[in-house]
Design a protein around this nucleic acid. Structure first.
Lengths: 350, 350
DNA sequence: CTGAAAGCGCTAACAG
DNA sequence: CTGTTAGCGCTTTCAG
């Protein structure tokens, strides 16, 4: 290295020691000055600041965190793809709540099932996130995913544990905090609303085997229908519909049935979208109720079982931050209320 | 501490040293075994792994990162609120690309202008993120934001710099990489499309003073209109429309004008949503073209200037990861193509 | 194959 | 007000 004079291209970040040296003080003094701690003479302070500036010094947060030993200001979120508006809305709520506490959201999405989920949980834990939020549709189905959740979750029993919060899914028999939607109640509400309009051939679209949420919504729906003595709906139920494309196909198939269903209940916003695509520009429009509200549902006049995704995210973040209060800790479950939003599509009569 | 036998509640995370001690080996050997490095006798390996497991050991990523000295596996993103589908779509694209490289996305959103942006950039840089992506609508307006970007961006000229990539906004006169949309071309396309249908009283909705993107889209639109010798549109232009609510109000006002505009061009997806809300259930439906595609635009039959948000995110991530290749580095700008998607609303004639 | 020593960059704890 | 010493938890030398 010939020309190393001045302050030229250094191969590495300047360190506190370099700043201290340049300012002619000890590292600790430099540290104090840079952190705005008291007990630093004004002229010293200035010298340090100037030196830091000349060097383009930027404190190394990694080192600081390590030394301070505490947890980081990072909160992990494992979620489904943000391209799904449900996930992005909830994520937005989480982020807002965290922001108000000076924390940051680290995200990783997980379309690939429990195997990847496991890896992600490990990675976050190693990074010593302050808390871990899990909103992964696949968690609900595969016992492999739950298994890992179980291990991690139980860890939270001891003091050094990281708070885990599950979103939109309550891990079976685990002492983990969770925020869920009143799924069964939503299903019931939809059924009763359609029954009141005189519908009996109601087609339900969803994938209960795959998603716990669909399971609960479906159960609520089925209960209400059965309680009303109505059993004509079951031949129209589709239980393998899990995305826009499959929903679209299912609806097209349903429209060719004879007798045709007079109403449709879609178990989440993706399926509602698929249904709307399939029904667009068709003469016959069955009644439609969708679980999950969505943007432009008002313009399209779609009746939905709505809930507040932002609020859901905030609740989860709040749970994560208020941490485990008691020992032995008690599981906290927050249930987000749902309500029916009447917009026309659900009020069409048979 | 009376009962400290067995493996009970320890107040802190177990460390490598503890694992090593329990296994009766040196820390280094334990490290090797846990990292799957070669040159460890099988029985030793097993002893270490068992010890680690008994202790519930989890390597401390902070310490590891510090020691390894390199950059982390984190990539920072500063964006607008994820509740806006544009942001969440792009974020999803970024996340996917990063995932394929084994990296994770750290997000912080920024509704509050350049002051917070500055703080966030600092925080990310201190955390030694591998790269920093900025997709903040406010960046485009306030020189304060740009100022900070400038400082950071120039830092990337030297070797230790963190790659900066701007999304949807090209910082003026800075050597920063960016991914932008062909905004002007989109504006032109919209204008020409409407002109071809015989429209002349075209209302444009946006907020050019606030958003650089709107500025460019507006300019493209104006150019095309003026080139065609059409000047009737300008009295209908609204240049302070920046969200759903203001768009809705602007449309309502426009519908009371005499003569009423025969067509509307909304400069982003929020404004298109507002326009649709305002126009829903009205007798008179002006032609409508919106910038940005959106879910259900097909069902609603809305003609749009579309682009691929996911792809945009991926491009940005790619730029960030391929890092600064040359010295002195050259600015790389990727322009995402746009295309007109004809769905009916834009084809209505005056 | 294994270990001892040193140190990543910073900050507590205690002196001066 | 300032400096010294030590050490966060891990991994890199370099010797056994």
């Amino acid at each position: 290295m010939a020309h190393d004079a001045g302050l030229p291209h250094q191969r590495t970040h300047p360190t506190l020691v370099q700043v201290a040296t340049l300012a002619g003080v000890s590292p600790k003094t430099a540290s104090r000055a840079l952190n705005g701690e008291p007990n630093v003479a004004e002229p010293t302070r200035v010298r340090v600041l100037v030196a830091a500036n000349r060097l383009g010094f930027r404190p190394n947060g990694i080192a600081r965190e390590l030394r301070r030993g505490g947890t980081s200001t990072l909160v992990g979120l494992i979620s489904g793809d943000l391209a799904n508006p449900f996930y992005s809305t909830v994520a937005s709520g989480i982020e807002r709540e965290l922001r108000e506490h000076g924390l940051q959201l680290v995200m990783a999405s997980n379309d690939e099932g429990p195997r990847r989920e496991r890896t992600l949980v490990e990675a976050f834990l190693e990074r010593r996130v302050r808390a871990l939020l899990i909103m992964s549709s696949s968690s609900g189905s595969d016992p492999g995913g739950s298994f890992h959740a179980e291990r991690s979750c139980r860890m939270t029993e001891g003091p050094p544990g990281v708070p885990f919060v599950f979103l939109d899914y309550q891990p079976a028999g685990l002492p983990c905090d969770a925020v869920v939607i009143a799924n069964a109640e939503g299903g019931r509400l939809a059924a009763e609303h359609l029954l009141a309009r005189g519908h009996s051939r109601v087609a339900v679209l969803g994938d209960p085997p795959r998603y716990a949420t669909h399971r609960d919504r479906f159960a609520g729906f089925a209960d209400a229908m059965n309680a009303a003595g109505n059993h004509q709906w079951s031949p129209y139920a589709h239980s393998d519909v899990h995305d826009v494309a499959t929903a679209e196909r299912a609806i097209l198939a349903l429209m060719n049935r004879d007798p045709v269903p007079t109403a449709i209940f879609t178990l989440d916003n993706r399926l509602t979208t698929g249904a709307l695509r399939a029904l667009a520009h068709r003469r016959y429009q069955p009644a439609l109720v969708g679980f999950d509200d969505f943007e432009l549902a008002d313009v399209l006049g779609v009746t939905v079982i709505a809930h507040d995704g932002q609020a859901m995210g905030r609740e989860a973040a709040r749970l994560a931050l208020t941490g485990p209060s008691e020992h032995p800790r008690r599981q906290r479950i927050v249930t987000m209320p749902i309500h029916l939003v009447v917009r026309g599509s659900g009020e069409r009569t048979p």
